[in-house]
Structure formats: C-alpha cells, structure tokens
Computed example of a mutant assay.
Amino acid sequence: MLLNIKAYIRKPEVAELISYTVFPDDQSVEKAISQYENQDNMQLYGFEDQELLIGLIGFERSEDSLIIHHIAVIPENRGIGYGRGMILELMTDQKPLRVIAETDEESVQFYRNIGFEVQSLGELFPGVERFRCVYEIEDENNIDNA
C-alpha cells in the first residue's frame, strides 16, 4: 500500500531513493526534495514493507493525466514488481486517463513491460537520449489487466 511520505521527506532513506532518480549529487537531490516540499501539486508516495521504505513514486496530477517525475526501488528489491505495483496502485487510486513519464534508455524496458508506448525525444542533454513513455487508459478494466 502506498503512503504519502511528504511529511518525512527529509529522512535519509527518502533522499537515498530520490538519489537513484536524479543525477546523484547533493544539489540534484535537494532540488527534487524542494519541489515536493514547495509545490502542492507535487505528490510523493512510498511503499513500505515491514516498516522498511522499499520504493517511492513522485508525481503530479495534470487535468486528466498523471505525470511521474520520480520512481525508485532500493537496489536489492528491484525486478520483483514493486515499481510496477506502485504505478498500478496510482492508476487505481487516481483514475487518470493517461500516465506519462520521461526517462532515460536504461529504464525504457521497465515502462514497455507495463504497456507504455515509448517515443524517443532525442538528446535533450548532450550525449543523453531521453524517452517519453505514455500509458493510455481506455477504461478501468485496463488497469486490472496491465
């Protein structure tokens, strides 16, 4: 079950997970944390298992879309469905018509495996290709089958 973790965003385990989603330097992590602290439309949820923060997902709601800004799972728990589970739970709870994420080449397959359509955005940063991933939800039954 996802829990709102904005209230304890300054805990080290939250910063560590955020560091997996941005350039891992103190400035980038601080910028991401500040976004969640200072922007009411930015939401940050975590997934805990036996009081251990396993993963987090940061997003904003924009009209009929859910825009994922950050998603991370601690390394020892990757590849077993926590990331997919967080996205599917958000789809069920938020009921958007589409879910959008921008990512790098390393994470494209993760989104494809869930059913996202992936489109290259080219090199938005020198030497780094970025991708737009979109999942269109036709009706509530698609969420259960994703």
Rank of each mutant, 00 (worst) to 15 (best):
E51Y: 06
R84E: 15
P75M: 06
N41L: 13
L90Y: 03
V14L: 07
I80T: 11
E129W: 01
Y135N: 03
F110W: 08
F47L: 11
L17D: 03
Y111Q: 12
R84L: 12
C133E: 02
M91H: 10
E138G: 07
Y45S: 13
F110H: 02
I33G: 00
V134L: 14
M42R: 05
L44D: 02
Y45V: 15
S107K: 15
I80S: 09
E13K: 10
N77W: 14
P126D: 05
I57S: 06
I143E: 13
E60G: 14
A146M: 14
L97H: 13
L121C: 09
V29Y: 03
S65P: 11
Q27E: 08
I33Q: 00
V22H: 06
M42G: 13
F125P: 06
V73I: 00
V29R: 01
V128Q: 03
L56Q: 07
E129N: 06
E60P: 07
D40W: 11
S19Q: 09
Y20F: 10
E105K: 04
E16D: 14
E117K: 14
N113S: 11
N41H: 13
V14F: 00
P12H: 02
Y135H: 12
A101E: 04
S19H: 01
K31C: 00
L88Y: 08
A15K: 04
I9R: 09
L52G: 05
T21M: 07
I114K: 08
A72M: 01
L2P: 03
P75K: 12
P12W: 01
A32P: 00
E13A: 12
V22F: 07
F59T: 04
I68T: 02
L3M: 14
I137N: 09
E89H: 04
